[in-house]
């Protein structure tokens, strides 16, 4: 029997977000510059922030061809985790506020119950679009900004959008 919660927040369309803890891939480990004098022992994404981040990224970076690869999403979440280990508690706090606002408020804007990550991808898209245009647009902008910065650093998405990484005075290719 369909519950009240299911009627308000239909689950058949739900895209499951199967989250596994960040696994730093070989490629990423080689990609990163490790500073000798860096902060040690910091805290990255919490257990709740990681799946929410993944759901948000999947919604943001869906193309006409469909959702992004699971491996790239995993790369993104792992690198976000590393960013907050280094950038510190205040940065994580601000990002967490943005994520919390998105997670709890954006579903309400499309008449669904939170959390955001349990909605279908299409509903998540509508919820984020609505929130981006609302007075809470700044929360979407903040989270989107850091996700985009990292996402387009991956050679795949960077090449997709035409970034060739060349300098003005590079010799011709």
């Amino acid at each position: 029997m369909e519950s009240r919660r299911d009627r308000l927040n239909p689950r058949p369309n739900l895209t499951p977000i199967l989250y596994t803890p960040p696994r730093v891939t070989e490629a990423l480990a080689h990609d990163r510059v490790e500073v000798e004098d860096r902060v040690l022992g910091g805290v990255g994404l919490t257990r709740r922030m990681a799946p929410a981040t993944r759901a948000l990224a999947e919604t943001l970076f869906t193309t006409e061809a469909g959702p992004p690869d699971a491996e790239r999403l995993e790369w993104l979440v792992a690198d976000m985790d590393h960013l907050f280990v280094q950038a510190g508690r205040r940065a994580r706090f601000v990002y967490r506020l943005c994520l919390l606002a998105i997670s709890l408020i954006s579903p309400l804007l499309v008449w669904r119950l939170p959390p955001f990550r349990r909605l279908s991808r299409e509903t998540r898209t509508r919820a984020l679009e609505r929130m981006e245009r609302s007075f809470l647009g700044l929360a979407v902008f903040g989270a989107k900004a850091i996700l985009c910065i990292i996402w387009y650093e991956h050679p795949g998405p960077a090449a997709d959008i035409g970034f060739d990484g060349r300098c003005l005075q590079d010799p011709p290719a």
Partner: peptide, 17 residues
């Protein structure tokens, strides 16, 4: 950088990409 530029592009999902 393009990532920062990407962040300023409006929209979500297909519209954003």
């Amino acid at each position: 950088p393009v990532g920062v530029l990407g962040a300023t592009m409006p929209g979500v999902g297909v519209e954003h990409t």
